[in-house]
Design a protein around this nucleic acid. Structure first.
Lengths: 335, 335
DNA sequence: TTGTACGCGTTATCAC
DNA sequence: GTGATAACGCGTACAA
């Protein structure tokens, strides 16, 4: 490997001058800059990142630990947001994924420490509460899409209550008055908060208990969540007869569309449909295209980096701060 | 930050002995190992990876450059496979994503070089031909899900021809004799190769031209691919009247299911459906569940690392080697 | 504007 | 078994 000294020799200057050119420090004769740059090109020199990191106190590395990257697009979007923002801020993201077979957060955190990361982002695949060991206190840490069970980290989560509230208000303001909510597993945070928002919106419009219906489209069997949208939708559509259905996730909305068509109804005409996620290409492949509350994963990833960087300059106001990010409605044709 | 020397002082040994313990080198008195480990714990010492990398020749770092991580699950699965295999081999993956707005492979490659990566994996989101500059020759490089336009890199791609051939044979052996192939954009490699396999299987069964039908479900307008499955399916189903449909991707199979139901037919009973991808949760959310050719992205990621590591010990047999990985049928209930 | 001496935290060599 | 000492490639401080 070519070193700074070899470049110096070829360029006919001291290696320090080369260092100055490489790091764009001011105060080098243009003539010498030229000479050095020529030598660099000629020899194919690349700065050795590791060597420079030893000397510098700031490594510019941020560790990103993800709880499971493959199953949902959520963690991917978060990662992308974080990566983009990190890049813009001149930082490098080191990404580590938990092994789903034997998840060991501490081991990955250890890895980050060894790389002298300046901070850690922990991203979860769905909005949940996670328990962290004390080792996580070693560095500034920001949680994304999850909160800590002991409430001691800065967290960035989607504002699921706002999402439930907003989309319900939109349905109501378009005239729908008999809404069924096919919610996710009620044990998860998102489901609880969305339901809260849903009820709040209904309440504001003065709707009675008989005007809405809430059902669950997920069943947990042996720790595995299974999707029962098809059956639940069939039941709710025929018995409750809603004029609009709010669905817990875009994927399940596929099932819902099928049931609605089977009953001879048309989505967006006979019955309104709204959903949550804005999951990849799903909303656009459906006919009519699905109006859905987009979960702001990308923006959450971006914000995580900003917050992390500002954490380092100014300590957090309180031990617990949870940033709830507003969700936007992707307005299409389903209601 | 705690250094090896501080540990040595606390443990009452020389810093080289600490280094030996940390790196698990043999030849240290058990007594001293104990002392050192105690001191490490007490001080909270973590080895400085950067410093170690300066001295070692092998950095253990592999660069992973992905052309666009967010749009498709493909690159995510490839990444995960690569990450798992790298971890098993004691290597660290440094992940870089191309900026879709201004993709600059060379810049990211440069980054990898500066980190003294030992090799590079370049992953694409769909099976395509990519052009690389000469800088990519600097390190052992393996391409995944793409080939080089100049055929000078080891590539790992799905065997789309085999996939098309295999799934068609399965359809035929189940008795289907009038098959429509709703293929992807014919400009992409996957579409071409699958069609080749499709035709080969039909030929082996001695089917005439009138017994099959090929249509395209993607249209390119202003460099944007749009999905026209719904219309194409409606047309093909009513005019050609197939007894089975082979669909280019799971997402489009959703549209196909809708059209089939609309015509009063039942998937898996009146008409067989097969597809390609095994895209996340889609095949399982459909009713009946979709039988589809799984693209072996995860395994491709794993193989990429293996091949990369073996490249370093033994140079490639020839300049161009393309590994085509077989696709497996995920047999469910749609045919 | 340029160069020298030194140190960063670690691994490698070799003598004890 | 152990520990000086050198070396890795580079940044910092300061002198020239």
């Amino acid at each position: 490997m070519v070193t700074i000294k070899q470049v110096a020799e070829v360029a006919g200057v001291s290696f320090k001058t080369v260092s100055r050119v490489v790091n764009k420090e001011p105060g080098v004769k243009p003539q010498n800059i030229e000479k050095v740059e020529q030598a660099i090109k000629q020899l194919g020199y690349r700065p050795n990142r590791a060597a420079s990191l030893v000397r510098k106190k700031q490594t510019g590395i941020i560790g990103f630990i993800s709880d499971e990257i493959s199953t949902t697009p959520a963690s991917v979007a978060i990662l992308k947001g974080a990566q983009d923002m990190a890049w813009e801020q001149g930082k490098t993201l080191m990404v580590f994924n938990l092994d789903p077979k034997k998840p060991n957060k501490d081991k990955l955190y250890e890895e980050c420490l060894q790389h002298r990361a300046e901070g850690i982002i922990y991203g979860a695949m769905y909005h949940q509460a996670v328990t962290f060991s004390n080792i996580f206190k070693s560095l500034p840490t920001v949680l994304v899409n999850c909160i800590s069970t002991s409430n001691d980290f800065l967290s960035i989560v989607p504002d699921d209550e706002q999402a439930g509230y907003y989309v319900t208000k939109q349905l109501l303001s378009k005239g729908y008055r008999r809404i069924a909510f096919l919610n996710l597993n009620p044990d998860i945070i998102a489901a609880q908060q969305r339901q809260k928002g849903f009820l709040k919106a209904l309440d504001e419009f003065g709707l009675a208990k008989s005007d809405y219906h809430i059902a669950t489209i997920e069943k947990v069997v042996n720790n595995k969540t299974i999707n029962i949208t098809r059956d639940v939708a069939a039941d709710v559509l025929t018995s409750f007869k809603p004029d609009a259905v709010l669905c817990g996730k875009d994927l399940a909305a596929i099932n819902l569309y099928f049931e609605i068509e089977r009953l001879g109804l048309t989505v967006g005409k006979d019955i309104g449909v709204a959903s949550f996620d804005n999951w990849h290409d799903i909303p656009e492949i459906l006919d009519p295209q699905l109006s859905t509350m987009a979960l702001p994963y990308y923006e959450m990833g971006r914000l995580a980096i900003s917050k992390l960087l500002s954490l380092k300059t100014s300590p957090p106001e309180s031990d617990q701060s949870v940033y709830k990010m507003a969700c936007l409605l992707c307005d299409r044709q389903s209601f």
